[in-house]
């Protein structure tokens, strides 16, 4: 690791100020992505501003049809929260499947969404549920937030404070985890919302999380595994790497979508 200055923020305002003044400073939340990156010397920040303990970034609540989760909420706490389990069980289940217990004991919702790893789980839920990303400056709709692999609408010094998930009628998430890391080779989140069925795919897109519109149209006529089985996802915009070809991943997306649809239709 290159050397840097560690600083524990006392308030959200202070963290925002420090980050706004120093382009090379970075917020540190759970550190489960940032610290491995630093260990590999892939980044050289001047300062790490620890925001994990900020009260402004804590808390889970379900009010007026919206589930709001603070950015510093750890994956294990989302998974174990009775409030989340009751409001959006698919989200609790998604959190319980991230990485491994030690990763879930430190990694946070805000860190995962800010990082926008193309194989991360949360982005699929944020996009499918049409959630709002609330920052220290504004509210950003999911559709505008994710802007390609590891790229988001966040400006320098802008911090995710919380994420607001409108409650769906029902939702399901299925992923094919990479056997070593747990990251999604393909993950599909299906949400039945007031605005129709939304299908978001992570792990597979060449430019990160995306909505599979053909699947949404097919499921709009009724949720069933058969509706997905008839579709073919074009492999052109699918990611290819050492873990799998684009054709293989496109097929995995279809299988995961079929399973999620089956889970949803079984529940109805």
């Amino acid at each position: 690791m290159y050397s840097f200055q560690y600083r524990k923020a006392k308030s959200l305002a202070e963290a925002g100020e420090v980050l706004a003044k120093d382009d090379e400073a970075k917020p540190l939340s759970g550190g489960m992505t940032l610290i491995p990156t630093l260990k590999q010397r892939l980044a050289q920040p001047t300062q790490l501003v620890d925001i994990a303990g900020l009260p402004e970034l804590a808390g889970i609540d379900n009010k007026n049809g919206v589930l709001t989760i603070g950015a510093a909420t750890r994956h294990a706490d989302v998974a174990g929260s009775k409030v989340v389990q009751d409001a959006i069980p698919a989200l609790a289940c998604l959190a319980a499947g991230i990485g491994d217990p030690q990763v879930r004991n430190r990694g946070t919702l805000g860190g995962s969404v800010a990082n926008n790893d193309p194989a991360a789980d949360y982005p699929a839920a944020v996009l499918a549920l049409n959630a709002k990303v609330v920052t220290n400056k504004r509210e950003i709709a999911a559709a505008d937030f994710f802007q390609g692999m590891f790229t988001t609408a966040l400006e320098p010094g802008e911090l995710i404070v919380k994420i607001a998930f409108p409650l769906p009628k029902a939702a399901a998430y299925c992923k094919f985890p990479h056997p070593a890391s747990g990251y999604a080779m393909a993950g599909v989140f299906i949400a039945q919302t007031g605005d129709g069925v939304r299908v978001a795919v992570t792990g597979a897109g060449a430019s990160g999380v995306f909505r599979w519109t053909e699947a949404e149209q097919a499921l709009a006529r009724g949720i069933s595994a058969e509706a997905i089985e008839k579709l073919t996802l074009a492999a052109d915009d699918i990611n290819e790497d050492i873990h799998g070809t684009r054709e293989y991943r496109a097929q995995l997306v279809k299988v995961m979508a079929t399973r999620a649809a089956a889970a949803l239709s079984g529940k109805k």
Binding site: I35, D100, R106, A180
Partner: peptide, 22 residues
């Protein structure tokens, strides 16, 4: 790479990877 868990300790009662925490 933060994957093996040989460094696991408890911090405030939770298992964490001490190689991935300052």
């Amino acid at each position: 790479t933060s994957q093996c868990g040989a460094c696991t300790v408890h911090v405030d009662g939770r298992a964490v990877k001490s190689c991935t925490m300052l």
